[in-house]
Design a protein around this nucleic acid. Structure first.
Length: 366
DNA sequence: AAACCGTGGCA
DNA sequence: TTGCCAAGGTT
């Protein structure tokens, strides 16, 4: 641990009964653990492939949202070798709608690496896992603890909240991460590190919730510094984040009979590698006239019909307003360079991010 | 190291 | 309705 973290621990109120916390936590987990598709039955070792797949999908994404995607992936690619042999395009199509698309690229790259460099077997150490694409400090610890029973404590958003309340951590996030990491490790007992981590996650998800925590049901209720002070809901402390600026743009819905004109976005950056309809840049300080000037040159299109209304979408760091223009062209019209026609009937199978699904739905009145 | 990177649920 | 939040990683 760092010396600064050690110094901060001395400032924390650590209740005398803290030695029993790991046992209280595991007892509670044995009675109240959630049943999740990627989670092994009590007492059984989890499948590293399922643990890894679920951890990647769960990065900044809720359990409820992940469920169907996890089942779809598992049915199509039952092990890491199968996923490593899949095409990136197939993986992106299956991932469409889940967001943070660099995760899908890294997922595929990781499966390829495990297949090629590790014979299809996941490394069984935190350090080995950490070297794989898409696996950062948190995920390496989570897989190590849950799949390989290694004594380490991953700290996700749930655990940050639980621990910051348990010890009434006054330092705001993200500065408090090292301190919270050290305090979280103190909740590991002599055995079952993976269950200890999952116990804290379940506790944070079902009892120690962001608002109106159900402290009366918490196994650590009379051992929680924030609860003793009565201000548990004010933890964790957080630095306020600045709001993103509204950006505007135009999307162009070009049909050729029952087909739609699309293209593929650049590999990196926002919605990297995903399919989109042609559109203007997305900029603050851009009006409809400027956006319309960026319409693609399509043979036979002399004027655009503007759909009434706007499509709105909120990304992590900015909101977006899209104006929609439509045009229809004759059969056999060539797609402009870098673009292609796809049947509207098969759009569901395309790697279309949700913002594009919204734009297309608005343009096509569907 | 701060910014970038999606989306849906929920109060 | 608006803002917060979710099993973070990469650059």
């Amino acid at each position: 641990m760092t010396s600064s973290a050690a110094a901060k621990i001395k400032q924390q109120a650590v209740p005398a009964e803290s030695a029993s916390r790991p046992a209280l936590l595991l007892d509670w987990y044995d009675r109240h653990r959630r049943r999740l598709p990627w989670r092994a039955a009590a007492g059984e070792r989890a499948d590293p492939y399922r643990v890894w797949l679920s951890e990647i999908m769960l990065q900044q994404t809720g359990v409820k949202t992940v469920g169907p995607y996890f089942e779809k992936f598992l049915a199509r690619w039952p092990d890491v070798a199968a996923l490593g042999r899949a095409s990136l395009d197939d993986v992106l199509r299956m991932w469409a709608g889940l967001g943070y698309y660099s995760r899908a690229r890294n997922l595929h790259a990781c499966a390829v690496a495990v297949l090629r460099d590790h014979g299809g077997i996941f490394p069984d150490t935190e350090e080995g896992l950490r070297r794989l694409p898409g696996i950062g400090p948190y995920t390496a610890k989570a897989i190590a603890a849950i799949a390989f029973d290694i004594r380490t404590m991953p700290v996700d958003g749930n655990i940050e909240r639980v621990v910051s309340r348990l010890y009434a951590v006054e330092e705001p996030l993200p500065q408090a991460k090292p301190l919270i990491g050290v305090l979280a490790e103190m909740l590991l007992g002599p055995s079952r590190p993976g269950d200890s981590a999952q116990a804290l996650m379940d506790l944070g998800s079902s009892i120690c919730t962001p608002k109106k925590p159900a402290c009366a049901l918490c196994p650590l209720d009379d051992d929680c510094a924030a609860r003793l002070r009565g201000d548990q809901e004010t933890f964790p402390r957080k630095a306020p984040k600045k709001a993103g600026t509204l950006r505007r743009g135009a999307a162009f819905i070009v049909t050729r009979g029952d087909e739609l004109l699309v293209r593929t976005r650049a590999e990196k950056g926002l919605l990297g590698g995903m399919t989109e309809v042609p559109g203007s840049a997305w900029l603050a300080e851009q009006d409809d006239k400027m956006a319309l000037k960026q319409a693609p040159q399509v043979n036979g299109v002399t004027r655009w019909h503007r759909k009434t209304g706007v499509v709105t979408h909120v990304f992590t760091h900015f909101p977006l307003e899209l104006v929609i223009y439509i045009a229809d062209v004759a059969a056999r019209t060539r797609a402009p360079a870098g673009m292609r026609w796809v049947p509207i009937a098969t759009l569901a199978d395309e790697a279309l991010p949700n913002v594009m699904r919204k734009a297309i739905a608005h343009g096509l009145d569907i």
